[in-house]
Simulated assay, not measured.
Amino acid sequence: MLEYGFPVNAELKVPRALVLRVHRFLIRLAVRFERLPDEMVVNGGTLLSEHPVKHGGFSNVYRGRFKDSNGDDVEVALKVLKIFEDQTDESRRVLNKKIVKEAFVWQYARHKNVVPFLGVDITTFPSKAMVSPWMPLGSVLSYMGQHSPSCSRALTSKQLDDVIQGLVYLHSIDIVHGDLCGRNILIDKDGRARLTDFGLAGFIDSQTSVKSSTRGGSTRWMAPELILPPPGGRFERTPESDVLAFGCFSCEVRLSSPCSKNST
């Protein structure tokens, strides 16, 4: 039902609400039995390097190669959460159950301005790795540095709109990005901006002590209420804090552009 939708003649008063209930039920089944649906698991991949090619805020990214459904070799990014690296086997087991939820969230977040989800690799690393297409142009920041010799090409208004549309979409399906910044916005081969690493900040938060002042995320892009919650308030990432982070990202783009560097 999640994959193909409901029959055209189905008498559903609130179809989206029913889809969300089915989605939640599927997540509970997967977590209870510690097993992902077969179509979410990818096997037979090959790492192109033993070491990460990127160290993100919450994860290490490895470059690899898998065969797609047509049997063609495709380059992919395998994302392994850093939090798994110093855990006991029992802790990894608990965290693996939580990563199942994140995989489901990403799988059904399908939009042209969101990095696609290809599946979960369960054999290459001690923990599960989420697999997505390799983005050869890298993040917005690396793209600007390598492909923007003049300020007119620093970042187009269309690419900024891509970021906005991706964020609007995530909010429409009740997902808060939580760590919107230049390194979490990738450029695909067609020059389109796509969001990635959404939801991971909240995942990391769930693994820290309630009494801890350490939170996952990029501090300079955080809303004031996240850095210093009001008395009696609690730390909570919201669509509003995402909007402020987008404003900070816009400043980041401006300060990183060749125009800005030339003017200084």
Rank of each mutant, 00 (worst) to 15 (best):
N9F: 14
M144K: 02
G232C: 00
I27L: 01
P37N: 04
R110F: 05
E3W: 02
Y143I: 00
Y62M: 10
N96H: 13
L244C: 10
I83V: 15
T156N: 06
S218C: 14
V42E: 09
E50W: 12
S59R: 11
K211G: 07
L26N: 07
A193Y: 05
R24G: 04
R21S: 13
S157W: 08
A129I: 06
S218Y: 13
D68L: 00
M222F: 13
P52L: 08
D174Q: 12
R215L: 00
Y169K: 08
S172R: 12
I173K: 11
Y143D: 09
E11W: 09
C248Y: 14
W134I: 03
L226Y: 12
G216Q: 05
F125K: 05
L244I: 10
P224N: 07
R183T: 13
G202T: 09
Y143K: 01
V140I: 10
R63V: 01
L12K: 05
P126A: 12
G44H: 06
I185A: 13
L141D: 08
G247P: 09
R192P: 02
V41M: 15
F246M: 05
R32F: 09
L155K: 04
S212G: 04
I122A: 14
V115S: 04
D73K: 02
Y4Q: 11
G199P: 03
S250N: 08
S127N: 14
K211Q: 11
G178L: 00
S263F: 15
E240S: 13
S132P: 03
G191I: 05
L26Y: 07
V31K: 07
S212E: 04
G45F: 14
L47E: 01
L155T: 00
T214V: 12
D197T: 10
T156H: 06
R63K: 14
A193T: 09
V100Q: 06
H55E: 14
S127E: 13
P239K: 02
K158Y: 10
F235N: 10
V163Q: 08
D179T: 04
A154E: 01
A201V: 10
H23N: 08
F6I: 00
R16E: 14
M40G: 01
D188R: 06
H55Y: 14
S263M: 10
H23R: 15
R192W: 02
N262D: 01
H171C: 02
E236W: 00
E252S: 04
A103S: 06
W221V: 06
R254L: 09
R183M: 11
S157D: 11
Y108K: 08
D242F: 07
V31L: 05
L95D: 04
R194D: 07
W221T: 03
V74E: 01
E85M: 11
R194K: 11
S91T: 11
N70E: 12
R21V: 11
K54H: 12
L36Q: 11
E252N: 08
